[in-house]
Computed example of a mutant assay.
Amino acid sequence: MQQAWRWYGPNDPVTLRHIRQAGAKGVVTALHHKYNGEPWSLDDVLAHKALIEKEGLVWSVCESIPVLTDVKIGGPGAQRAIENWKTSLRSLAGAGIPVICFNFMPVVDWTRTDLEYEMPSTGLALRFDMIDFVAYDVCVLRGDAAAGFYDPAVVAKARQRHAGWTPDDIRQVEDNIICGLPGGEGRYDRAGILRELDLYRDVTPDKLRANLVHFLKEVVPVAEEVGVKLVIHPDDPPFSLFGLPRVVSTAADLRHILSAVDSPANGIVICTGSYGVRPDNDIVSMIREFGPRIHFVHLRNVRREDHGSFNESDHLDGSVDMVAVIRALLEEEAKRKAAGRADWQIAMRPDHGHVLVDDIGKKVNPGYSCIGRLKGLAELRGVMVALAHQDPALPPI
């Protein structure tokens, strides 16, 4: 696999030179300063690419072109937003960016309730606590009207949790949930998220799924025309939040997406952390079933807790069998290489990482500190080297 690294542009505390020092060759990035739905010009994309290539790296994956709310709800501005998306897609293709990632999560992108959860090592991790989330929704944001979206036993625990919160606790949880995390497409205050949630009041899972298929039928032919691969990122976490539908959470969801627009250009991201939150997702089996359509991989681990809660564990220590996952991905690469596929190599990046050592106390993007990802990439690279050494049929690192 091509070892890559996510970069948030010139303002990212982790620089391109740091990425080189980590041993990554590829960069996963986007025009994060143009994240409001306006089309990206070829000149803008080329300028961003030049920054990367100046440091001896390659832009491997665009993550992400935002998909606006109107597209997800089928609103009046949907077609204009899709046409802008196509323009950005063409610009990326014109600059030689081979893979474009996107997601279709409603309102909130990847979501955590704690951005500095202390691990036994004393490193700081990301965590999602379902009780905290429900306490915020039911006791702070929407009141009793939201209670029906959740298990009654969880709601009871959430009310107890909220009873012990201080105003500072409420502000912290609210900031973590609705104020936007790196790579997300929206930042809200309390009134703003209520307005956004109201836009989805009539959007059922079937309607959201239909709007996703409509979007794919519009953009996949363009991807085919310009010679790039599109990949959809799973819901994170892979279940309903705020009572909203989520339609990229399971193997069954992927079967629907890939069969609805059956094209090699319509592909998927295997995010082991997102899919790994659900015990009913067998990630190794998913890799074997959907292998030819996997064009990008996020490797991170999670440790499942009760009620859907989880923390982000070390890359090789959690509920996901990372060694088995990497073996399955290397086997998929070997099949592609034997078949003569030019795109046999899959870009991967170490996703998220603990805040460790000198990064503690520094300004870091949550989940995207340098040293934690450096540690994670080194561990993952070691697994890849060991597996390739053990089995000569696997691609060398």
Rank of each mutant, 00 (worst) to 15 (best):
E218Y: 01
I346P: 05
A135R: 06
E312A: 07
N311R: 09
R17S: 04
V71E: 02
A146G: 06
M384K: 12
A81H: 02
K34P: 04
D359P: 01
L330Y: 12
G291A: 08
A163E: 15
N176P: 02
A135G: 13
Y200H: 15
Q160E: 10
V284Y: 06
H352R: 10
T113S: 06
R209T: 05
D12I: 12
T250G: 14
R303S: 06
R6K: 14
M322I: 09
A163G: 13
G192V: 12
H352Q: 04
I397E: 07
S319C: 07
S319W: 08
D129N: 13
T111G: 11
P98N: 11
I283S: 12
M1T: 07
R17G: 13
A22T: 09
P264G: 02
A324E: 11
F290C: 04
S274A: 10
M130S: 08
G123K: 00
M1Y: 08
K86V: 03
T122D: 15
W40C: 00
Q160M: 15
I257T: 05
E312I: 01
E379T: 03
A153D: 12
H48V: 00
S88Y: 05
S60E: 15
C101N: 07
A81F: 00
L208Y: 12
L241F: 12
A378C: 00
H307A: 15
P106H: 09
K217A: 10
Q160T: 08
D137R: 09
S60T: 04
L254N: 11
G192I: 12
A338K: 14
D359W: 13
I326G: 10
D359Q: 07
K337M: 08
G23I: 03
A260V: 08
H32A: 07
R17Y: 07
D343W: 09
G276W: 05
Y368C: 01
D306W: 02
I270W: 12
V154M: 13
C101L: 09
F133E: 13
H352K: 07
T15A: 06
V28Y: 01
P292Y: 00
G123V: 02
H295S: 08
D168V: 11
H354I: 10
A210Y: 14
A378K: 02
N281R: 02
W110C: 09
K49C: 06
E196P: 10
I73L: 05
R288G: 03
V14G: 05
P237L: 01
K25W: 09
Q79E: 07
E218D: 02
L181I: 09
I371W: 03
N311I: 01
I177V: 13
A378R: 05
V213N: 15
E333S: 07
Y200V: 06
L212N: 09
G318R: 13
Q390W: 05
G23W: 11
D391E: 12
S369M: 03
H352W: 07
R127N: 04
F296W: 15
S121R: 08
L68A: 13
K363N: 11
V67N: 01
Q21S: 09
R112W: 03
A135K: 13
D314M: 11
R80T: 13
V228E: 05
A265Q: 03
Y188H: 02
P205A: 14
V231K: 05
P395H: 12
T87K: 01
V14I: 09
F310H: 10
